[in-house]
Structure formats: C-alpha cells, structure tokens
C-alpha cells in the first residue's frame, strides 16, 4: 500500500507543471483566475505569482506607503490560500504603468519566464474591453510579448551569459473579469490566436473565497467606496450599514458568486471562470495540426 502511494506521488510529481501567474494588482488574478489556479495547485502543480504594481492607491484612509505595505502582506496570504508557493513583486506604483517603458516591463517579466521555466502562463488579457484599470492592459501587453521574447536567444543577451537560458512556455491563459460584452465572441481562426475557454471552479470556490477575503485592505476600500457613493445619493445598502470584517466578507462572497455565475452562464457549471486559452497546439500552424 505504502509503495503504491509512493508510486502515485511520484507519478503526480512527474506530471506536475510549473505555473507563472502575472498580475498587475493583488486582486485581479484572484477574482478572474483564482479558482482555476487553486484547482491546478491542488493536483500538484507548482505556482509562482509575479505581481507588477504595488496597490498603493487601492485603500481607504491609508497613506500610499501604508497601503503598499499592507496589500503586499495580504497578497502573500491570498496567494497562499490558492496554493501559490511564492510571490515576486516588481514594485511599480499602481495606476502608473502607462508611464513605464513597455520594453522594460516586458524584459523584467521575460527574465522571470527564463528563470522559472513555466509550463503554463496566466496573464491579464490586454484585449479585454472596458477593463477600466489600464495597468491590467499594460501588464497583459508586456507579458504577452515577454512570453514570445523569453524564447528567443537574441533577446537579453546577458541572461544567456549568466546561464538563464531561453524558454518556451507551452500553455497560455489570458484572464479578465467578465466586463467585456464581446468577450465570448470567438477570435479569428488564424494560427496562434487563442480561443475562449470556460473552466468550472466549484471544487475550488472555497479557496478562491479565502484568497479574496485575505485582501482586506482592497476589499474594505471597495466596500467603503460603494457606501460613500450610496450615501452621497441618498441611498443605502443594508449590508453595508456597518462596514466591518463580517460585512466585507459577506460582500466578497456575493461578488465571487456573482462572477462565477456570470462566467458559468450557458455552460454545464454552477461556477466558472473565463479565459482565452492557447494550448500546446498553439505552436503548430493550423494547417499542420492534424
């Protein structure tokens, strides 16, 4: 029996993948892809999070420096709840990626791709429309490009010199919260164009919820902003009459259930997440695939 378990563990380890998740902010990867990531780590995959910006503005009544420190600690907790092994922060200031050199950002992401050699990449979908936080767009553009340049020897020559070799990432998930009304339209069927993919997350929902709740600073700020907007227009949400840990946690659960239901619509799931996905066949021109 013991040897059988050892054999199973060995088989699982042999098939396990390395996943690199690139996120602009501490909340987006949890809300858009947390369930899928938790499902993968639960089956033995190893995941690392690369967080580009520092969330120094997404807080209520905290100075930017305090907000950055707290959200950083909370992001670590959220990542742990999803089974992510490590968080690497690049430390750019939130909302300011529009002023960062796209090549600089791309090369910093490509460095981590070459260093960690992931089998799977999760990146923000830069083509998702009406995602108002443009850091996600800039991060997605840089990460999409980084996946490509990380595979090319002529990029970043010093990396090869220190033994960090080029790497091809075989699977690519583009994630975004479901705000784009055209998100489910299939893309053109040309080679190398990822297609919509819906993943059921019912089994992983509790982990996703724990991760989202760990982001206390961001979630409390969101609740306070809703309450302030309602107050300024003579309205109220009974749940937020008192904003405390309990009411914020309840609001987070409602939000996550709302997201999961939206993504599951028209699919055989109760809860889901949506992606644009390019698998290993992505490497092969359409005319040669069969």
């Amino acid at each position: 029996m013991k040897s059988l378990l050892c054999l199973l563990a060995f088989a699982a380890a042999a098939n396990s993948k390395t996943i690199l998740i690139v996120t602009a902010d501490a909340a987006d990867f949890v809300l858009a892809a947390g369930g899928t990531i938790a499902s993968m780590t639960a089956t033995g995959d190893r995941a690392i999070l690369l967080r580009v910006a520092n969330d120094d503005k997404n807080a209520w009544d905290l100075a930017p420096e305090q907000a950055a420190a707290r959200t950083s600690a909370e992001c670590e907790q959220a990542a742990r709840a999803l089974g992510i092994e490590k968080v690497v922060s690049l430390g750019y200031r939130e909302g300011e990626l529009g002023g960062v050199s796209p090549t600089e950002l791309r090369d910093r992401i490509a460095f981590h791709i070459r260093l960690l050699k992931p089998d799977v990449l999760f990146i923000p979908n830069p083509y998702a429309e009406y995602v108002e936080q443009l850091d996600r767009h800039y991060t997605g553009m840089a990460a999409e490009e980084a996946r490509h340049t990380a595979a090319l020897r002529n990029h970043q020559p010093p990396l090869a010199a220190i033994g960090v070799e080029p790497h091809v990432t075989r699977e690519l998930y583009y994630y975004a919260q479901p705000v784009d009304p055209r998100r489910r339209e299939p893309e053109a069927a040309a080679t190398f164009v990822p297609q919509p993919k819906v993943v059921g997350i019912e089994a992983a929902f509790s982990k996703k919820l724990r991760a989202a709740r760990a982001l206390k600073t961001i979630q409390t700020a969101a609740a306070m902003r809703i309450r302030q907007r309602l107050e300024s227009t003579g309205r109220r949400l009974p749940l937020l009459d008192t904003v405390n840990e309990e009411s914020v946690n309840k609001l987070v659960e409602i939000e996550l259930r709302g997201l999961a239901t939206l993504c599951a619509k028209d699919f055989p799931y109760k809860m889901a997440e949506e992606f644009h996905y390019a698998g290993p066949e992505y490497q092969v021109p359409a005319k040669l695939r069969r």
Partner: peptide
C-alpha cells in the same frame, strides 16, 4: 453610444447592488 452604468465596473456585484440598494 457605449454606456458604462454606475456598477458596471463591479461585474460580480452589479446585479446584487441593483436589487438591494434602497433609499435612505
């Protein structure tokens, strides 16, 4: 035009807010 309504930036909460917000 393309209209972005009050809660559209919170896709998971938009329906809940529309259904549960009340006058003070």
């Amino acid at each position: 035009f393309y209209f972005r309504d009050e809660w559209d930036h919170l896709p998971g909460l938009a329906k809940y807010l529309r259904d549960n917000v009340v006058k003070r």
